[in-house]
Design a protein around this nucleic acid. Structure first.
Lengths: 213, 213
DNA sequence: CGTATTCTCAAACGATCGTTTGATTCCATC
DNA sequence: GATGGAATCAAACGATCGTTTGAGAATACG
């Protein structure tokens, strides 16, 4: 009866990803998810254990690859004298743009990421921080090297704001339809350029503490 | 039994604002709201008619003043030869920063606004577009004047991305605690400066269509 | 003061939520 | 082809959801 080439688990993850992106984690019910995936309602608890575990798995499936790509890109520029702030930002942003370019739900996942930033759910934030906090930490080290005048605390909260704002901006690229005839690839690359300059300007501002005292 | 100096309606609106900010519209139940407001459960439907109407009223209460301030600030710079892009962005951003500075739940509302950007709820988007779309439209007119090389469509979607990203960034200011001894006012003004330069850089990029063809 | 209106309250409504159950089907292995 | 674990299924669980009800308290007005 399984007409799809994908397994039950994969179909659930894909449907959950799409529905979480548009309705949020609380707003999308397991009945909606299982109906969209064309599986039985009980399949979610059978394969994942609970709705919260399903949410975590939606993240894990994409974030593992996304973050290893980010760290690989970071490793190519970290510690070098010629590295500019824009290069580090590119290492963070480009992998997400690549992800959203792949047809298989990647664009939806970027919107799920934006949802996660909006959610102040403590369980979800702890899961993300525990499992993927080391990525942000490694980027922070490199940003600190390139922005020696900023205190570590300030690096962290600027990064949080910047990445949140960028994540939202990237999420919306998945929705807006190109009306011109530029290729999707060109469109995304131009957009990444906007975002990188955007973020660099915010990060490069003089340190708040010394300027204000 | 009403020990608070605020009316039942106001207490509901305040509690709803805070809970929608942290748990989202679907995630915050009317039972949580009425418990926090210390009113009876039925009071919501008595005073507002439904949960959706309550959500709309949470927006209306703040957006009316926020948008009239935005339009007043815009009117002071619109059409003048000396106006820079940064001035128009300041007219959009500063009123929101002012709102978040006022103690009475304004910071929570900015986070509710960020929620609204994350929500793709059609009903909510239509309500906001119907009632407050003219504000964005007037700003778009002025941006179009200052960015004559950009097509109108492109102005609109860049503005949507930019305002979404800025709204998220502003929302997080309410959470991050200042550790230095700068005044709250100075902190916000510096932050606004970051955001304005941020947004100006994104908007000023060369038009995508001509560059890509 | 008596009446009318507004408001508040506890209780219940049907619907939907996440989750669990127990039977049934599928499929690999011997 | 029989056996046993994995997977799927319809059905139901208790909890919680938004909403409604009808009676009672508070308030305004003649």
């Amino acid at each position: 009866m399984n007409a799809s080439p994908f397994s039950t688990k994969e179909r659930i993850l894909g449907a959950a990803e799409a529905l979480f992106a548009t309705h949020g984690f609380a707003g999308a019910s397991l009945r909606q998810v299982t109906a969209a995936a064309k599986v039985n309602l009980a399949a979610v608890n059978y394969h994942f254990g609970s709705k919260d575990k399903l949410i975590e798995e939606v993240f894990r499936r994409r974030l593992d690859e996304l973050n290893s790509r980010r760290l690989a890109a970071l490793a190519r520029v970290a510690g070098q004298a010629s590295t500019r702030l824009e290069d580090v930002l590119d290492a963070y942003i480009s992998p997400a743009l690549d992800l959203s370019r792949h047809g298989g739900g990647g664009a939806a996942f970027v919107r799920v990421l934006a949802r996660a930033y909006a959610e102040h759910n403590e369980t979800l934030r702890r899961f993300l921080s525990d499992n993927y906090g080391h990525v942000l930490r490694q980027f922070a080290v490199e940003f600190a090297r390139l922005l020696p005048d900023l205190a570590k605390d300030e690096i962290y909260w600027r990064l949080d704001i910047v990445t949140g704002a960028l994540t939202y901006a990237m999420a919306d690229f998945g929705i807006i339809q190109r009306k011109t005839e530029v290729t999707e690839r060109t469109h995304r690359e131009q957009a990444a350029g906007h975002l990188i300059r955007f973020a660099a300007a915010g990060l490069r501002n003089p340190p708040l503490s010394t300027a204000a005292r």
